[in-house]
């Protein structure tokens, strides 16, 4: 299978956007170079992956691990919001407060 092995800083910028991380220009350039090296090194992986090989997503052979549909107590509200960067309260209602949303849900 063909793999492109050179990444430009534009590619890295697009990936950083997908991953929601601000990167500096210096980081963009540095990562582009470094990731190119990694991709070079992993090229042999793609080469070894013949079509007839069944991929393994998990070393375990377990299936059908289920939980019973029985309610257990949820967390106390104090614990829910203990670590929250911003909350808003109105009477008995408390929410996580987040900045205005630009994008669309999936």
């Amino acid at each position: 299978m063909e793999c492109p092995v050179a990444l430009t800083s534009t590619d890295v910028a697009r990936l950083a956007d997908l991953a929601r991380i601000d990167l500096t220009v210096k980081e963009l350039e540095q990562f582009a170079g470094e990731l190119g090296v990694v991709l070079d090194a992993v090229a042999q992986v793609s080469a070894a992956a013949r079509p007839d090989i069944v991929p393994t997503s998990h070393a375990l052979n377990l299936t059908n691990v289920f939980r019973d549909d029985v309610v257990r107590p949820s967390m106390p509200l104090a614990d829910v919001f203990a670590m929250a960067p911003a909350v808003e309260q109105d009477g008995d209602s408390t929410w996580f407060r987040v900045p205005r949303i630009l994008g669309e849900a999936a």
């Binding site: 063909e2 070894a48 991929p55 070393a59």
Partner: peptide, 15 residues
């Protein structure tokens, strides 16, 4: 397929 998928196949080979 080229990356994650291939790596999963190599995982099979290692096993």
């Amino acid at each position: 397929d080229a990356y994650y998928g291939s790596a999963q196949k190599v995982r099979t080979l290692i096993i």
